[in-house]
Structure formats: structure tokens, C-alpha cells
Nucleic acid binder design. Structure first.
Lengths: 329, 329
DNA sequence: CAATCAGATGTAATCGATTTCAGAGAGAAA
DNA sequence: TTTCTCTCTGAAATCGATTACATCTGATTG
């Protein structure tokens, strides 16, 4: 509980000298440095970050906004962010917005009020106008989800290309009747993944059927189950399903198995995200892997650069199709 | 970017008056208050938390320590903590320790250096000596995992009783040969759950067989698979498995199904924790539900009370056995 | 009318660090 | 000896808020 004054007194020097020792400045005589270090040890002194932050006007805390902490999609990204942040001497404040503006605002306030230096937003439902306004005065990076014309730098993958590849894979293994389990197209990724789906079908002259394109309200397990129930009611049933998220696909797997539909023999399934759990299902899930850890690391690095006043550009990373049991008998 | 001085100047009052308005003190004349509020609006002023925290020596930030963010067990607890914290005007800093002391120390430092007001530790591998030493000067609560003689208040369930009930359930539906998939007994919960397992068997005069008690190194899916592989190699195979964690149990389910062992007909399985995924498996998993959200809320409330200098006591909450498909044909 | 009091506001100290600027002292050069 | 440099150190301002205490005004009371 000692402060810098007491350390200075104990060491018989001024606070300025103590501060110099703390900040490893070289213009301190060796024996003075030793005296100060001993005083620090004796008093069990820890410099207050509040005092320092107030003076230097940086808190070295980064905010990470996600809609739901329970969504496993974010796990690796967060790990990437955290690793990179710690390397740069920053800490992260993980914030669950629950897709509610009032909770977003709590966290935006933390930045406005100087308690945090910048934001990595991964919330697709974020109030984009607020975000753009914030970005005028504060460092912000969007990760995974982004908006094209906001001027806010982002780190993401080419969703359209990734979806195209996933659907093309289904076509190559012989499927023609392919359903898309999508979510609300107000989300850019949903829109882009649908485009990829359509362009793959177009390329092979497979007609687009409206009844094969389903929309779910959320990305949960139950939504995937519900979508399959709807699909199984169709007269002309598809032989493959491309779901825009692993959780949807896993819900689909479960519902198919409950209905005695064999995967992949009766119905092939492809997911998106390669969450950990996608390897624990029976059968294991074919899915699109995003370089999540890398995305997180890059997002953090860029944010820190932005905080330091550098100009940063958006990045589009590569993805990878991981073929597993749900598409290979 | 305005500060309180500029607001005071703009409103034609002193900083003290502005501060009074900010803190909603009543001894401000109505029209003065209006002048100040207008100045605040005009300058787009946001009070700096750093200045405030430095002066009041409280940051209103709580640290939550967990070993792995990817462990779904913690999700609801965190939600509970966060809800309760926000209600009290606190924010939480979610910290993944990765069970590494050097990462723990980074976060402990944050408290020592006044950037955070207290800690909720959920890390069973936490360096307990460091924690006890920290607890002398700082507010700390243990949640879920705890140590008996540390003097640090905790919020948890009666693990022994819960395990006892789970195993008793298996006995009641006719099982006599029950395996325990446990983890390292250095963890208090592992120790306690084993006690519950033993006391249930004892109560029904079922002999304890060493080969039915397995230990895994971690609580992951693969560890559960591995344990089942070992069990299937036994000459005299058990007919039921009690795993001390859902992830272990889910790994077990998968491995059993891969080996053509039907659950629950050939082998019943019980897990522990009632993580979300436990309802998404095929068959769904019988498990012990901890009141996780409540645990989190109580932990946060107690921590805040502790920060305010009140004396707080430990709490043991109720659990519940959730019977699902993996134990009911 | 003087004394007392309450309400509204301002002055200035304070929290704990960093940092600018100036000064002391030692040694080198003239 | 004087002057100049260079190294090391300290005094004091500063970041942006809160708050104890002082002050002023006007109303109330005896």
C-alpha cells in the first residue's frame, strides 16, 4: 500500500528518481538505483496503474466485444487477441454485449471515460452508427464481422469464397440437391455465404430452389434442429445441407440421427467455423476452418498500432475446408 | 476530450459544482444544475474514470480468473457474475490463466496496482499460497473450487453429496458394476466426488474395485474417450460410468458409440456440470446440475460486499440430478 | 437590529504517478 | 583558476477527478 513518495523517502531520493528507476531510464547512478530497488522491496511497493494511466493517458486495456460468451466460435479468436495483447503489455476486458445496445453502451463508455484504450468488436449486431461515431475519436477494429463502408479497419476471411468451396465440395462428391441453412441476411457474413452458395450452384448449372434456402433466427443448436425438421417435411428432399455455422450443423446432425436419417449416406452435412465441438459429434463434421487464432492476433496487433496513432489497413485471411465424416461415407 | 475544468468554465461555475452535478448531490441550485448539464452536453464531456478512481481509490473493476475460457462449465457462472457486477456498477475483467503461474501473476498485479478492486477465482490450479497472501490485503472470493483452510470465502456446492446422489441413481436403476472416471485428486472436487462415489457404493454393500476407478490428466473430450478405451479392455466390464465432468462423459459417449456399445442399454453414463452440450449429444446426458448462474451472482455480490469492507461468509448451494437418456432406456 | 443558520458555491488540497526544467557537482579543457 | 560539459538528481507542474473547508447570501429568530 506504499506509494512512490514513501519509497522516495525510504531510499533518501526524490520521487522523480524513483520514477526513473521504475521506468528503467538509464540516467540513474548504479548505487542510487540499488538504493531505490531495495526500498521498493522493503516496502513491498507496487506502482499504481491509476496514477500512471492518468498521467500518461493510456490504460493499456483493450475491450473485446462479443455477443455471447457461450458461442464457441469466439474462443480461439479471443485466445489470439489475448496472447498478442499480453505480448504488447496490454490486458483485455472481455465484454458480452448480449446484442443489447444498453450493454454495448456500458462498454463504449469505458473507452470514452479513458478506462480502456480501444475496442475489438466481433458483434455482428453492434450498433454500427454508434461504432462509426466512436471510431472518429477512438481506436476500433472489427474482427470477423465488419461493415464495408464504415471506414473502420477489419480482419476477416472471404466468406463468399469459403461458402463457394464448401458447396462445391458437396457437388463434387455427387450432390445436386443442396439445402442452405442460413441466418438473417442483415449479417454481412450470412449474405456473403449465400452468395457463395449460389455461385457454386450456378457454376454447375444447378437450379436454385427457394424451398432449399432456410433462415434461422439465431445460430443455436435448436435452430439447426428446427431447420432439419422443416427440411424433412419437404416433398422433394435435398441430399445435402450446408449450414452457415457449426452449431446449426450440429443441431442438424442430432435431428437427422433422431429421425433415422443416416449421415452422410442419406444426407451430407457441412458446417462453418470448425469449433472444437465439431470434432466430437458422431459423425464428425465437415466444416470450414477460419484461422481464428491468427485473426485474433492480427486484430489485436492492428488495434495496438492504431492506438499508437499508426494507420492500419483491413486484412482478409485464408480459410480451409476440413473434410470429415459428415461428407465422406 | 473535454475535462471537468472546461465544463466548469463553459458553465461559469467551479469544478466542485460540476463534480456535484456529476455525482448527483442535492446541494446544487436547480438552474445551476441546468447550466452545468448544458455545458456537459455541449462539450460532449465524459468524466474520466482514471481521475475518479485515483481520487476515490476504487476502480470498480472485478477480476474473474478461470483456467480455460473454452471450458463451457464456466459460462453460466460468468454470466451470473457479470449480471450481478453490472447491477452494482462494476465491470468484470475476464482472465484466462491457462493454469500458468506467470499468467496468474499478471492478473494479481492488476489488483495490486489498483487497476481492479477484487478477484473471483475459479481456477482449481491456482497457486493457493499466493492467493492466501493476496487475500490479506485484497478482496478475494473463490467460486466453485476452493480450499478449506485458507480463510478465503467461497461459493460452491456439496460435491460429495452430489456425487453420492448420481451414483445412487445408477444403483437404483439396477447397476452394481459402476466405474468412476475421475481426475487428479489434488483438486478438491475430485477428491470429494470420489468420496461420494465410495459412500454410495458402501451404503449398498457394493465392493469398491480399484480397476473401476480411473484417473484422467485433464477434463477434455479426448480424456473421456481414452478412459472408455481403458474400461473396454477390462475383463470384467462395468455396466455404468460416472464421470466427474460432462466433457469426460461426452467423450465417453462418443467412444462407446464408436465401439458399438449402446448407451444406456449396454452401459449407462452420468456426467457432472450440466453444460449446454450435455443436452445436444445422442443420447442426451444424465448429469448433475450446479446452480451456476446463481453461484456466479452470489460470488460477485459477496466480493463487492468484501470490497466495501463487510465480512462475508462462505456458501454451499444446492445441486440437482438431471436424468436424461444416457441412464434411461 | 444583531445573531444564527441553512443553502449554494468556490478554493485548494489530494490521490499517485510522469516529466520538464533547472541546478549541483565532478571532471576536462583552456 | 576559470570555464565548459556531462551526469545525476530534485522541485514542481501536471493528468482529472473528489471533497473538506471556507465564504457568501439571504432568511429566520429573539
Amino acid at each position: 500500500m506504499a506509494n512512490i513518495q514513501q519509497v522516495a523517502m525510504q531510499a533518501g531520493v526524490s520521487v522523480a528518481t524513483v520514477s526513473r528507476v521504475l521506468n528503467k531510464q538509464k540516467s540513474v547512478a548504479a548505487n542510487t538505483r540499488i538504493k531505490v530497488e531495495e526500498a521498493i522491496k522493503q516496502l513491498n511497493y507496487e506502482p499504481s496503474l491509476l496514477g500512471r494511466s492518468l498521467r500518461t493517458s493510456e490504460s493499456r486495456i483493450l475491450l473485446v466485444l462479443i455477443p455471447k460468451i457461450s458461442n464457441p466460435f469466439y474462443l480461439d479468436i479471443i485466445q489470439g487477441i489475448e496472447t498478442s495483447a499480453l505480448d504488447h503489455g496490454y490486458n483485455i476486458l472481455l465484454c458480452e454485449t448480449d446484442s443489447k445496445p444498453e450493454r454495448e453502451n456500458i462498454y463504449f463508455d469505458l473507452v470514452k471515460k479513458k478506462m480502456a484504450d480501444g475496442i475489438i468488436s466481433m458483434d455482428p449486431t453492434v450498433n454500427i452508427d454508434t461504432l462509426i461515431k466512436m471510431a472518429e475519436n477512438h481506436a476500433i477494429i472489427q474482427c470477423s464481422e465488419y461493415s464495408n463502408d464504415s471506414g473502420i479497419p477489419y480482419v476477416t476471411i472471404d466468406n463468399e469464397q469459403a461458402a463457394y468451396r464448401a458447396v462445391k465440395h458437396l457437388i463434387m462428391i455427387g450432390h445436386q440437391k443442396i439445402a442452405l441453412v442460413n441466418t438473417d441476411e442483415k449479417f454481412l457474413y450470412a449474405n456473403q455465404r449465400k452468395k457463395g452458395y449460389i455461385s457454386a450452384l450456378n457454376e454447375y448449372n444447378i437450379p436454385i430452389r427457394d424451398e432449399y434456402i432456410l433462415y434461422t433466427r439465431e445460430l443455436g443448436f435448436e435452430n439447426g434442429q428446427q431447420a432439419i425438421r422443416n427440411i424433412l417435411r419437404l416433398e422433394n428432399q435435398p441430399t445435402a445441407v450446408f449450414a452457415v455455422s457449426d452449431m446449426l450443423a450440429i443441431g442438424a446432425l442430432k435431428e437427422l440421427s433422431s429421425n433415422g436419417v443416416h449421415v452422410p449416406n442419406d444426407m451430407a452435412v457441412v458446417g462453418f467455423d470448425k469449433i472444437d465441438f465439431s470434432n466430437m459429434t458422431n459423425p464428425t463434421l465437415t466444416t470450414v476452418a477460419q484461422p481464428m487464432r491468427e485473426m485474433g492476433e492480427i486484430a489485436a496487433t492492428k488495434l495496438i498500432a492504431k492506438i499508437k496513432g499508426e494507420k492500419v489497413e483491413s486484412v482478409i485471411l485464408n480459410h480451409e475446408l476440413v473434410i470429415r465424416e459428415s461428407t465422406s461415407g
